[in-house]
Amino acid sequence: MRSSYLELVCPAGTPAALHAAVAAGADTVYCGFRDCTNARNYPGLNFDMDEMIAGVTYAHEHGCKVLVTINTFPRAGQEKSWHQAVDNAAIAGADAIILADIGLLDYATRSHPGLRRHLSVQASAANALSILFYREHFDIKRVVLPRVLSIEDVASLIQQTEMETEVFAFGSVGPMSEGRCFLSSYMTGLSPTHEGVCAPASHVVYQDDNHCIKSCLGSVTLNKFSKDEPAAYPTPCKGRYEANGRTSYLFEEPIGLNAVDILPQLKAAGVTALKIEGRQRSRAYVSKVVGTFRKALDDLAAGTQTHGSGDLKTMAEGGRETSGAYKKGWR
């Protein structure tokens, strides 16, 4: 049954977004606690313990599963907060936890053997051997695949490991191997691996500079663009740089990932679940994107034609879309 059904996994940055995701047709939502134990630790976002319990209850009442993301790497000497998060997820009744750190996986395996463990994209497991390591050692039930793989790679991985996989269907194009990128801390001194924030808003500054906007991360200029040019997130990998005498988007353009057009291929590859990124986005985004994917998946299941991705373009980063690494030639 599961194999022919693509599960839609949706972001919930706030309780309101969780409600919106459930209403728009999510099969599963994922969310995190209001601290540095998850990779979207933005001010005003995420769930405290009361909200988590209420969120899980609400989702379960509506036939929706909840995954709790605890995917940053505990800092030496401060592991207790991460252990607490794992314990709290278990208490709140989460259906699974999403982890990346080997030490934390070990803790969860020993302390809560019955709580399903998923391997986060932050663990950067991009090959069969790595996935088997995590399965043998920590009995992980699902792996979230890095965004650096083509559809052929994804299919081959599933064949080799026979593992449940979750792949990104909408969100950012992550050009770097995730969980192992130190560019943001190189520029700000704050580490995404521990603090859970890439390009922290506290270090982002926009300067209005005569018909031109300059975006800075800390003291580093990331980009200069004219006022009618589309903008990207102010992360180091989406900046303009000068190399070899040319100024360009050296790492990645301001463009979003949208896999709605390749759902049949992903399904054929044997993917279990599709992940919509965007816990930092608004509930308007959640409603719109989840709704669109719900419809596309229902059409796919019914064997009717999916109508293109046209309406999601405005939601995508930079107002443009790509199918990213899924298609060869991207790299």
Binding site: P175, Y186, A243, R246, S248, L250, F251, A325, K328, W330
Partner: peptide, 20 residues
């Protein structure tokens, strides 16, 4: 200091080529 690894080749991109 190595700061990141990727699938994409940025050296090739800087020369308007690609990894393959």
């Amino acid at each position: 200091q190595p700061l990141s690894v990727a699938m994409r080749c940025y050296h090739a991109r800087a020369h308007e080529l690609n990894k393959d």
